[in-house]
Design a protein around this nucleic acid. Structure first.
Lengths: 249, 249
DNA sequence: CAATATGGTTTCACATTATACAATACATAA
DNA sequence: TTATGTATTGTATAATGTGAAACCATATTG
């Protein structure tokens, strides 16, 4: 049997969001349907522990600094690989294709974590592999969310052509990156390896930065139309789950 | 009247720290003196709301991702200037001297916030003033906690001599920075301005970085021995308070 | 200016509900 | 096997959180 007042306290804290960071007792009372007296007592309890504070000294409430301390402690344990690992395994089991996680290192991307395809026919990449950022959706998703100047610096170097599909034109590249930002995911077929596709979504951290890209990849012939829809949906939602667990709101 | 079970829940969450991020029910029961059944039920309530999670799937407990979400929301409001402002005012009122907050901008420091001295005789600086990092303790404290390579890059330029006391020798500089790191504060007298002292402590954020330096400064003749001790104690504790409210643990 | 609304706090009697203690269950070690 | 350290479940009792209404304090309105 769960403890009701603790649940209510948590729900009160959940009312605060980036969009609505400051709330009064009546606001919360309306949002949750609890009586004002209940909300008042819970809030004053929470404020004793610095979980909430009043703006100025009197007035409405906002989350207190205790929340940040907890957040910091929690972040120490919920590092990218720890958080991503189980979610990636679930994703692989659902989609049966290779699932990889890439991060930026210098001006390249490296594979931090990978679960292998469950199919017989599969290209097996290795963890730690270094690839350029411009070729393949896994790289381009990382590129897409970099600050503009950093992006341009990387793209100012010569873009190596891996296959006929590799984008090496700066204008086309910017268009592709803009599309990724608009859709929230990227797809590539045969850009770095001629016969391979990947479907890729960004992973965000607590400070609103893209820290990794999560990809499903496999041989082109298995990327049918309905599979494509499934992969997009799955990889986007898995990337979102990882992001949330890293503190992204 | 504060709600006891909520208080207990908070205290349970407070048991988790960077040093001890993973705890079992018996651990917590011993730490707080609550019976195991109480702790068990509170923890399972908290885990329903993802405030705590079990390591792996069964086993001990750690803080859950909800804590990071709250931390993120809270950080949005508790920005450096907002947090520092009231604490700096209190510090000025206690010490009567000018209190300033500096942050790094490029390879300089700029004054982000300032409260003026309460004395008749005072040098009044302006908010937004840009100064080099090597001259004066306010700059050197910022310098001391930079990554080594960045530090060296800045110091490789020619160090302008403002007064006879300005440190321009690289070896002496490194020794001074090491001392700041050891003590947790820095003092300078007549380095940038011949007649002025400053006593300075670093301000940390949630990700263990020094984001600002907090200083008390005034004319040399007022820096008596007992005043000096008071200023050190006060500025260090004020900087710590700001740091905590920024999520530093 | 009184009248009215809105937001927050406090009081109090009552019944919900969290608690301690014990019992149970489940590991792992000796 | 027994012994030790875990976590969970059951229950009677007493603590304690609850809602409704009263109470303040500020705005807002006519």
């Amino acid at each position: 049997m769960s403890i009701k007042s603790v649940g209510k306290a948590v729900e009160i804290l959940n009312c605060f969001s980036v969009q609505k960071p400051i709330l009064g007792i009546s606001d919360i009372s309306r949002m949750l349907g609890y009586t004002k007296s209940t909300v008042s007592r819970l809030l004053s309890t929470l404020s004793e522990y610095h979980c909430v504070e009043r703006t100025d000294g009197y007035g409405k409430y906002k989350l207190g600094y205790r929340m940040q301390l907890w957040g910091t402690v929690s972040q120490e344990l919920n590092t990218l690989p720890d958080v991503a690992d189980p979610i990636m395994e679930k994703l692989r089991d659902k989609c049966h294709e290779e699932v990889s996680l890439y991060v930026i290192q210098g001006d390249h991307r490296v594979c931090l974590l990978r679960f292998e395809s469950l199919h017989e026919i599969a290209r097996v990449g290795t963890i730690g592999g270094r690839f350029p950022l411009h070729a393949g959706a896994s790289g381009r998703v990382l590129l897409a969310y970099l600050p503009k100047e950093q992006r341009e610096k990387i793209m100012s170097g010569s873009l190596k052509k891996f296959t006929g599909g590799t984008i090496i034109n700066a204008k086309k590249m910017e268009a592709s990156l803009a599309e990724i930002r608009k859709n929230g995911y990227g797809i590539s077929t045969g850009e770095r390896e001629a016969e391979a596709f990947s479907v890729v979504a960004p992973v965000w951290d607590a400070s609103e930065r893209v820290v990794a890209s999560l990809s499903i990849s496999g041989p082109n012939f298995r990327l049918t139309e309905d599979k494509s829809a499934l992969f997009i949906k799955s990889v986007v939602s898995a990337a979102k789950e990882i992001s949330i667990r890293l503190g992204h709101v």
